[in-house]
Structure formats: structure tokens, C-alpha cells
Nucleic acid binder design. Structure first.
Lengths: 220, 220
DNA sequence: CTGGCATGTCAACAAGTGTTCGCATACGGT
DNA sequence: ACCGTATGCGAACACTTGTTGACATGCCAG
């Protein structure tokens, strides 16, 4: 991807890629445990032992298959009022649009029972979502809290829509979902955080985000 | 539970109960697949074959272990403005309070990879959450949609807090969470549904719930 | 053409799974 | 006391899993 001179273009690169493709699909569809090496190999049209030869172990194959990249946009370059809808639309597009990426579903399915996958998800949260939110909010602890709230809503959406397939949620169009859920995310990001223990909030009125005009988000 | 004369109190009832207890714990902790009959039997302190004798098969054991009862309160008897926080607090108390019930976690963990468990969850949603919401909203389709939105938030909360254990979400106190997330649920239940395809909404201004005074929910 | 290595297949292993069967044992009614 | 049955155990079966090693086959350098 980076430099074309990435050394030694092996003849088996096609097979390697095919294995990875099959692995991604299987892991996304079945989760870590249920996805068997044999099934992946069958999908890739080769022998199971090849999988081991090229990727060592099932764990390592999973590690190679999962490259969770939320590709979050720079939120500071988005109109303040549209942060919520934009973010929801982004996620929907990210995992069911044209350039869909099974990464999150893969991880979500697996994380329910596999603690390594859960750790991955926590890492992605800490390393990708929290930093982006931190650009909007000064207070570190508060940024983490806001990011956490956003995660509950976004992962819940992914869960209900793409995994559980709750009929009403699965039936709604991406636009409708963005319109319905956008305000929630908007409030989590920029709204006042109503009363409650504010962890680490040292600033006097520490429940306000950097973008001053907070509050009435979610009323349309 | 109902009548003490429930016929033939067998001598093995204690064992049966112990098996069920161990099964619930294991299913909740590991999910359907990862929870093995042998492990459950070991937890219960008996032989694996006893599990089969008393419950037939692993599927049937799972079916016997899961009795998802959200015990949702009658929302019509709750102050309109407090619907959201009440509901969030109820759920938090339901699955981590004194009378905690692993049922939902059990189902959530399993539903990610087991389609039978997912179907259970859909049934619980359709049979318990939707009807309660329907008491608040006339339009059936709209009630289902609102219930779906509530599900995305509540299941997302359960997921992030009790399964993924995202640090910020896991660290927040139940009260704080209710204060933060309550308004979201409130808006999903009684708020105006902002523009977007309104499925089945035949009424002219069909985006308003029965409880007239909608709108500015979530601004504190 | 020929050797050496990458690529791939086949068969098998050891461990773990749900599940079944046969055999002890202890209880409860007569 | 005795017998039928419920209760429990242990071993085993058939199967799937991840993983490994021996063996075939193709490609390219010399």
C-alpha cells in the first residue's frame, strides 16, 4: 500500500489475500469461536493447513484479519449543529454503505464471548473515538465520558440493526436513523451533562463542552 | 411458585435447581457456545450425564435457563417527564442491582453468535418492550419504531457496561448514567420524531405521541 | 535438464465437544 | 425384609476442533 517496493512479492500473495478475505467474512458472520479454520479454508478454496502455514495460529489469523479503523472524520471541521447526524450517518455508511467494512461487526460478534476481541474494541474506543472527542472537549475525563455515552448509542445501534436485526431498527432507512439518533449523539457530544457525579470535573462549570452554545440539542 | 401442590416433588429437585443455577451463571459468563455441559456439571458438582438426563439436550437446557422477564413497570403510572430516567434506572437495577438477573446478559452474550438466542431477544423485544410503549403511543408502527430506538440505547448501554466494560461507561454510577441517558430514552418515547421517513404513519401529524406535550426532552 | 525451494494436499494427532449406555446405590412403599 | 425405581457415576462413542508433519507438485535459477 505504502511503497510498491515492499520487498519480495511472493507468488502466494493471492492465496494469502484470499484467506484473509474468507477469514474476515467468516469472523464477521459467525464470530471468533464459531468461525472454524476449516470453514475459512473451504471458503478460500484451499487446504486448512495453508491457513496455519501462512498465519501461524487462529489467534494470529484473527489478529491479522481485524484492522479496526473507524475512519472518523475531523469533527472540528464539521458544523457544530450537525455533529450528531454526521457521526451517525458516517457509522451507518461505514458498515453498510458502499465501502462497507465488516471490521466492527466482526469484533462486536466476537467480543461478546472472546475477551481478546473485547480488549481490541476497548483499544479502538480509547485510541480512536476518545481522541476525536477530546478535540471538542477540554477536560480529559469528561471527553472520555462523552465518548463512552456515544459508544453506548452507536454500538447499540450496530447491535440491534446488524446483529440482532430487530425488525423496526433494521427496517429504518439510514437517513431516518440519522435523523432519529443524531440528536442523541449531538447531546452526548456537546450538550450539557445534567446533574450527576461528574468524575474529574475540576472546572467550576465543568459540564460544558468547548463549543459554548450547548443545551437544547435533540429537540429538532 | 404458584401452587405448592405442583405435583410430585421429586427427590432430585435440589439437583435440578443446582444445575439450572450453574447453567445460568455459565451461560451468562461465557455465552452459549463457550459454556460447556461439562463445566456446568462441574459447577453444580455432579456428573455431566445428569444434565442430559434432566434437561435432555444443551439447547433445551439453555431454553430452560433463559426466562427473560424485563419486569417493565406500567409506564402510564409514571410521571410523564420521568419516563426516561425511570426506565434507565429500572434496567440498571434489573441487571446489576440487588435482585439482579443474568437473563439479559446471558441472552446478549449468546445472541451475538447464536441465532436462536437472537430470536429470543427479538421475541422479548416484541412481546415485552413494544407492548409497554404501545400504551404511550397510539400508532402501532410508531410504537414499534420508538421501542426500537429505546432498544438501541438500552442494549448498547448493557453491552458497553456489562460486556465490553468500556472503562468510562463501567465507571459511571447508576445515578449518573440515568441522568445522562434518561433524556435520550425520554425523547425516544415521547419526543417529536424529527424529519425522516415515518413508516406506517398515516396520521397527518403522525409523529406526535399520545402524551401531547412533546418536544424539548433532553435539555434538562 | 536438474536441483532447490516455495506452494499445496493428505492424513493424522491430541484435545475437547455433546451425548449415550450400562452399572452401582440408596430411597420409599409394601 | 424385599423389590422397583429414582438417582448418581464412569466410561465410552462419534464427532469436531486447532494443529502438525510427511509427501506430492509446480516454479525458477544454474
Amino acid at each position: 500500500m505504502v511503497a510498491p517496493s515492499t520487498r519480495t512479492p511472493r507468488r502466494s500473495d493471492a492465496t494469502r489475500a484470499e484467506i484473509l478475505r474468507a477469514a474476515r467474512a467468516r469472523f464477521a458472520a459467525d464470530g471468533y469461536q464459531k468461525a472454524t479454520i476449516r470453514a475459512i479454508a473451504a471458503d478460500a478454496g484451499i487446504d486448512p493447513s495453508m491457513v496455519m502455514r501462512y498465519y501461524g495460529t487462529k489467534d494470529q489469523l484473527f489478529a491479522a484479519a481485524v484492522d479496526i479503523d473507524l475512519r472518523l472524520p475531523d469533527l472540528t471541521r464539521i458544523p457544530q449543529r450537525r455533529l450528531g447526524v454526521t457521526l451517525v450517518a458516517h457509522f451507518l455508511h461505514r458498515w453498510e454503505g458502499a465501502a462497507a467494512d465488516d471490521g466492527l461487526l466482526m469484533l462486536l460478534r466476537s467480543a461478546a464471548t472472546d475477551r481478546a476481541a473485547a480488549e481490541r474494541l476497548r483499544t479502538a474506543f480509547r485510541g480512536q473515538l476518545v481522541p476525536v472527542v477530546r478535540h471538542l472537549v477540554d477536560n480529559r475525563a469528561q471527553a472520555a465520558e462523552r465518548a463512552g455515552l456515544v459508544a453506548t448509542q452507536m454500538l447499540g445501534l450496530a447491535l440491534c440493526r446488524n446483529i440482532l436485526r430487530l425488525p423496526p431498527v433494521a427496517a429504518m432507512s439510514p437517513d431516518t436513523l440519522a435523523a432519529r439518533i443524531g440528536p442523541t449523539v449531538q447531546r452526548y457530544l456537546t450538550g450539557r451533562l445534567p446533574s450527576g457525579t461528574s468524575p474529574g470535573g475540576t472546572s467550576p462549570s465543568g459540564t460544558s463542552p468547548r463549543t459554548g452554545r450547548a443545551g437544547a440539542a435533540g429537540t429538532g
